Simulated scan of single mutants.
Amino acid sequence: MQYELLGSSDLRVSRVCLGTMTFGIQNTQQDANEQLDWALDQGINFIDTAEMYPIPPNEQTYADTERFIGNWLAANPQKRQDIVLMTKIAGSGIRYIREGSEISAATIEQAIDASLQRLQTDYIDVYQLHWPNRTSPHFAKHWPWRTNPRNTDVAKERAGMRDIVQGIGKAIDSGKIRHWGLSDDTPWGIHTYLNLCEELGVPKPVSIQNEFSLLHAKDWPYLIETCAFEDVAYLPWSPLATGMLSGKYLNDERPKGSRWTFVQRQGLFRNTETAHEATARYVEVAQRARITPSQLALAWVNLVPGVTSTIIGGTTLEQLKENVQAFDMTLSDDTLRQIQQVMKRYPMPF
Rank of each mutant, 00 (worst) to 15 (best):
T330P: 00
S14A: 09
D231S: 13
I177G: 01
F46V: 05
W180P: 00
Q29Y: 13
D113L: 10
P305G: 13
W300P: 00
A233T: 11
V13T: 09
L40P: 00
Q78I: 10
R281M: 09
P54M: 09
P349R: 11
L331G: 01
D64A: 12
K141C: 04
I311V: 15
E284S: 10
N271T: 03
I124D: 02
A228E: 10
P236C: 12
I164H: 02
I172Y: 04
S136V: 11
S8M: 13
L320F: 12
L268W: 08
N133R: 02
R178K: 13
W237K: 05
W38H: 09
T87R: 02
Q35Y: 04
S8T: 14
G169R: 11
F327E: 03
L320T: 09
R118E: 06
R134M: 11
A140K: 02
R95L: 02
H142L: 11
I164Y: 06
Q128L: 11
W143D: 01
Q166I: 14
D113E: 10
Y222E: 13
I108C: 05
C197A: 12
F350L: 05
T310V: 15
H179S: 05
Y193C: 03
Q29R: 06
T135S: 07
R12H: 14
D231Q: 14
R162N: 06
R178D: 00
V232P: 00
E59R: 12
N148T: 01
T186N: 09
M348P: 00
A75G: 03
Y222K: 08
P236S: 12
S183Y: 11
A280K: 04
H216D: 03
N76G: 00
V263H: 14
T61Y: 06
F269R: 03
E230S: 15
K256V: 15
Q295C: 00
Q117G: 08
D122E: 14
G24C: 10
Y3F: 15
E277S: 09
D48F: 08
R150Q: 03
W131A: 02
A111S: 15
E66Y: 07
Q2W: 04
E99D: 14
V154K: 12
P205D: 15
A106I: 11
A159I: 06
Q78T: 05
K88Q: 08
P149V: 13
Q209T: 08
A75M: 06
D334S: 13
P144A: 12
L240H: 10
S246N: 02
R15D: 04
P187Y: 14
R288S: 06
E318T: 10
T152V: 14
T65H: 05
G314T: 02
D184C: 06
T121N: 04
E66N: 05
I190K: 10
Q120P: 00
E198Q: 14
G314K: 03
T242Y: 15
L303T: 09
E273C: 04
I339F: 05
S115P: 01
S183N: 04
N302M: 08
N45T: 07
F350K: 01
G201N: 14
G201F: 13
P236E: 10
R158T: 11
F68R: 01
